[in-house]
Design a protein around this nucleic acid. Structure first.
Lengths: 233, 233
DNA sequence: GTGGCCTAGTGGCTGAGCCACTTGACCGGT
DNA sequence: ACCGGTCAAGTGGCTCAGCCACTAGGCCAC
């Protein structure tokens, strides 16, 4: 059997780059938070163009394995560049209801405290997060960063380091549910509306109302998450 | 609240392109198999560079939503560019055992028939698929295309249009399990060895041996597949 | 110290261009 | 009428060179 007769192997370049990148992470012993070599360096050392490097990085980006910071380098999110096995995904899902229950308990209380304790500066930070999220959505984005900032600001305004610590321990899972929730069509703008209601209650210093608004919001997220279905409210 | 104070919205360009692409598919009423506009046209009409268009297409490619054929255009794989919700994935997984049982029944018989009925030309086609898969693996690929060709060639060599039709109805799910199975480390080369055994039995005209080899192969795939699956409840 | 400035490094994106592959039309021979 | 080969247009794959925007860290003035 001649070599020439063998069918040509087609393989996108970026896929090969992906492989080399995975290998590099292993060989160099990189772990979460470490920085990948600069795109220009990678292009030079792998002998491909920067555009191909970038395509590979974009793939890793959408898979949530890497975070590219404009002007600041590209960083590993986990210890590996392998996609998460489905098994772990399913496994994590099973634990998720507990996380959401915890979130409801914590954030409801946080909103209540924030309404009572927030300074004017903290209120302003919350409002800024709201504006940020609105801008994101206007720009066609899903507003996940504004969402994160909003909840972070509310948590800060509650002035409870203990509750804040608890929130921190489930921050990862919350991020996950946030992203998935906001990916649902029409979800971002409705989420923004709920955030606004929470903000207004906190601004008015109405603890009871703030708690109720937050509870409603968190429950909506939980519902979306569990059913991939957006209830009309 | 001044415009200037609002935090800047950062959003990767390719994400916006992704959105526009999704919208276009809906507006233009495109469905599976239809061709997307050429990259150059998209770049011009969206007012971005071709590189950004390509990044978006690469994303759709790794998500299995689109198939880019070198020189032939980019085609829709499904009727939409939305990623499949995780729930549906999980749901489909539950039905998978049945599919694998069916596959075992069908392909075992197909291998048996192929050993008895194959022409020399068909045998050559099977061998070519084997070579193709080897090349893919040598090139660092997972050999999924060679795998597909091999099973298609065996099916053709069996000369049973009815069994072939049955195979066609579960082709989608098989493709899915194939991809996932071959993603396991070390799996491609072992799969190649099993294919070789099947090929040799068919070449020798040994129907019983061919059936046994195919059964073993399909069961291996099923095992890999089932191990990564955790029942919901 | 502290705050502001500056600069090197880095990712984001562009535009022009070449190559490789696919497709279909065209044309010649049979 | 059919087959087979050739050819050109269209399209995706990839590169190169370069500019812009942002980040981080050092430096300086206060």
């Amino acid at each position: 059997m001649s070599e020439a007769l063998r069918p040509m192997v087609k393989s996108r370049l970026y896929e090969q780059v992906l492989e080399r990148l995975r290998a590099h992470v292993v060989e160099a012993g990189l772990s979460a938070g470490d920085r990948l070599p600069a795109e220009r360096d990678l292009a030079a050392s792998l002998g491909v163009s920067r555009a191909s490097i970038k395509q590979a990085i974009v793939v890793l980006e959408v898979q949530g394995l890497v975070e590219a910071r404009h002007g600041g380098g590209t960083y590993l999110v986990r210890d590996t560049l392998d996609v998460e096995p489905v098994e772990q995904l399913v496994e994590r899902r099973k634990r998720l209801p507990e996380v959401l229950e915890a979130r409801e308990a914590l954030e409801t209380k946080l909103a209540e405290l924030a309404a009572e304790r927030r300074t004017d500066a903290e209120l302003e930070t919350i409002r800024a997060a709201l504006d940020f999220m609105r801008d994101e959505i206007d720009a066609g984005d899903n507003g996940v960063e504004g969402d994160r900032r909003f909840h972070a600001a509310v948590t800060a305004a509650a002035h409870s380091s203990l509750l804040a610590d608890f929130m921190k321990t489930i921050a990862g899972q919350i991020t996950e549910s946030r992203t998935e929730s906001l990916r649902q069509p029409g979800r971002p703008s409705r989420s923004l509306a709920q955030h606004t209601a929470i903000y207004e209650a906190i601004a008015a210093g109405d603890a009871k109302k703030a708690a109720a608004a937050m509870r409603k919001h968190v429950r909506t997220v939980a519902k979306v998450r569990l059913l991939t279905w957006v209830p009309e409210d």
